[in-house]
Design a protein around this nucleic acid. Structure first.
Length: 632
RNA sequence: CGGGGCGUAGCGCAGCUUGGUAGCGCGUCUGGUUCGGGACCAGAAGGUCGGAGGUUCAAAUCCUCUCGCCCCGACCA
């Protein structure tokens, strides 16, 4: 009889192992390196079909469905409605945004029989905007938020780490449309709701994660957050302040106020005469360090960027190149360079063009910027020193000699940079240690332009220092602004009958990546350990003899009625094989039915994550015990 | 795209240097003995050696081209 009640209790699944395919293996394919790839392959969840292309077998499909259901519930609760857009997109759709070019080879393209070119959607800003243009005709319909869960395609240069970075993957993407940024119905309101929804999604998935600030969008402020599953094997480095809630990725992480040098920036006597050293074939800091035995922290790293700007911008700023200088053991942060220089877009300078201007790439010193029009010298605080306060003596620097295959020792900012542009620099800027220092002729700026490191001062809590961790990005929320609506002509009349560009936000979750990230975070040498909410089954009943099937079925039925998903290992295998496989596939609770326990009218009870020996639980209590354990 | 490496049975690998009728372990199938942490014995099935061309009496092996795959880097939500 069909149950027409809207409140029908959900019934758990009962699956016989013998009735599905769970091809576990002792050895993982040679390709597999990361824990998630090895374990998901060995335990029969996924199988590789091509580079970055995977079959999702029944167990994986159940996990993906569970993650998707949690995502759906939270997205729905946040007021977003689900739709489904095509994955196959006519290339003409990108005419307005030029993203087919920006994406470049990352965009999968296919040709139809009429030689028409199509893209396989990597994300769906264009089609959703196209749809919204047609469907949203009045400001009274705003705000609105839409999402879908769908297979996405990216022609990755190098797919890797199994499911973590495939060419085909499952993603939830959501888009919101607004008339305003602030206030009721504004972008910020939805963004905050999405932040809360994401927090609750990953909490409900049972994952340990960190929400980090990411590269700011066109609107500025903290316009973007990434949700990172904490895992040592993660590809991304994140920085956290233990004293405040601040967390950010390397690209974004600010550095708190660093103590200003006692004598002022650049000030200090030379540590010796400027000596040239022959350093053949040593363009990099490490090679030079090896050859000369000078530590990287005593070197200056000079990186030349070309400013990508329109002719109008160029006329205004006059900047064509930026020479960024950081300590040899530090890394230049492009975003910070852009920000400090107040330019929108930069790229590493073309070596040939740079050489024509007199920059010997690999052997550049700050002196190379002196006297050159249109070149901004941008020096990191830790590099702009003339005196070593800790050692109480002049600061020793090694730098390039501005000619191929030579470096120079005893570089001194005041002596060797000359009066231009240094003379125009305030020498005692200690009053604003966090602000940027700008030379009056605009040719030199001292600022924070390097990547943050563990141990750097926190930007949010005085006295606290940053710590680092590794993470896997599983979610990203972003304030898009009017980028797509402008490019595709989506505007709308407001209540004052003024034409307004629609403001958008976009919000993504890597569903298949979340599955893999969970394995990266939760496994042991025996196999996967699923968090209960996303486990393919909650309970595995391991029978040690065919005669135990009656008890197994009875238990499974009781559990199923209470909403528990049960897998019964009914195979005619030796116990050892069954135990190994149960551990491998990572079901949260194993109930073993064997003669020993059965003699006491009991079954063995063992949570997967527990290191303890299994305990006997009476048949009459085991259901309650299971529910209790699953609920905590 | 640069550098390195690998394609031999479902999975893991040997054989290639020095050409001569393709092998091992795991898994699978049959029979038997076993049965609480990946059992044992006996037997069996399963491979156009990634593909194409070339050299040779003879090619998994040597040569050329090609396709696929992995790792490091560049790039990347």
């Amino acid at each position: 009889m069909a149950n027409h009640s809207f409140t029908a209790p959900s019934t758990g699944a009962i699956q016989l192992w013998s009735g599905t395919i769970i091809p576990t293996t002792r050895d993982a394919p040679t390709d597999a390196e990361s824990p998630s790839h090895i374990l998901l392959s060995r335990s029969g969840y996924v199988r590789k079909l091509g580079a970055g292309i995977y079959d999702y077998l029944p167990l994986a499909t159940r996990v993906l469905r569970k993650i998707s259901q949690i995502v759906r519930q939270e997205m729905d609760a946040a007021g977003s409605s689900e739709l489904l857009l095509p994955a196959l997109l006519p290339i003409e759709l990108y005419a307005g945004t030029k993203r087919d070019l920006d994406y470049g080879d990352l965009l999968f393209k296919v040709t139809d029989r009429k030689q028409g070119i199509y893209a396989l959607g990597p994300t769906h800003e264009e089609p959703i905007t196209e749809l919204a243009k047609a469907a949203i005709t009045s400001y009274k319909q705003l705000p609105v938020s839409l999402y879908q869960i769908q297979t996405k395609f990216r022609d990755e240069a190098r797919p890797r780490s199994g499911i973590l970075r495939g060419r085909e993957f499952i993603m939830k993407d959501a888009y919101s449309f607004h008339l305003d940024i602030d206030g009721p119905g504004g972008l910020n309101e939805t963004y905050d709701k999405m932040f809360a929804a994401y927090t609750s999604i990953f909490n409900r998935c049972g994952l340990d994660f960190t929400a980090v600030e990411a590269e700011a969008g066109p609107i500025g402020g903290s316009a973007s957050h990434e949700f990172m599953v904490n895992a040592d094997s993660g590809e991304d480095t994140i920085l956290k302040c233990p004293a405040s809630n601040y967390a950010a990725n390397v690209e974004k992480c600010e550095i708190g106020p660093r103590p200003a040098p006692s004598k002022g920036y650049f000030a200090g006597d030379p540590s010796g005469a400027l000596d040239e050293v022959h350093t053949p074939n040593c363009p990099g800091i490490e090679e030079v360090a090896k050859l000369t035995k000078v530590k990287p922290q005593n070197m200056l790293k000079s990186v030349l960027f070309a400013v990508r700007s329109s002719p109008e911008d160029l006329a205004k700023s006059g900047q064509e190149y930026i020479l960024a200088v950081v300590r040899g053991d530090h890394d230049v942060n492009e975003g910070k360079v852009r920000q400090a220089a107040s330019v929108k877009s930069i790229e590493l300078a073309d070596p040939a063009k740079a050489a024509a201007l007199g920059f010997a790439i690999g052997f550049i010193s700050p002196r190379a910027a002196v006297g050159k029009k249109g070149v901004l010298l941008l020096v990191d605080r830790d590099a702009a020193l003339g005196y070593d306060d800790a050692a109480n003596k002049p600061r020793f620097w090694m730098t390039g000699a501005d000619k191929k295959d030579y470096h120079a020792k005893h570089f001194n900012w005041q002596r060797d940079l000359g009066t231009d542009p240094l003379a125009a620099t305030p020498h005692n800027p200690t009053t604003h240690p966090a602000g940027n220092l700008k030379a009056t002729n605009n040719n030199l700026i001292v600022a924070d332009v390097r990547n943050a490191l563990a141990g750097d001062p926190s930007p949010r809590a005085t006295g606290s220092t940053l710590i680092t961790g590794r993470g896997i990005e599983v979610g990203h929320i972003f304030k898009l602004g009017t980028k797509y609506s402008d490019a595709m002509g989506m505007s709308i009349l407001d209540d004052k009958q003024t034409k307004r560009s629609v403001i958008m936000g976009c919000y993504g979750i890597g569903v298949s990546r979340t599955m893999a990230a969970s394995v990266e975070q939760n496994h042991d040498p025996d196999g996967i350990i699923w968090p209960t909410p996303i486990a393919p089954y909650h309970v595995i009943i391991t029978t040690l003899s065919p005669s135990h099937m009656t008890v197994a079925r009875d238990l499974a039925t009781q559990l199923s009625t209470l909403g528990v998903d049960v897998l019964i290992d009914d195979r005619d295998e030796r116990p050892g094989v069954k135990f190994k496989d149960a551990d491998l596939i990572g079901i949260p609770i194993r109930l073993t039915i064997g003669d020993k326990a059965l003699a006491e009218h009991a079954v063995e009870f063992k949570p997967r994550k527990s290191k303890d020996k299994p305990v006997n639980v009476p048949l009459t209590q085991v259901v309650a015990r299971t529910i209790e354990t699953l609920s905590t």
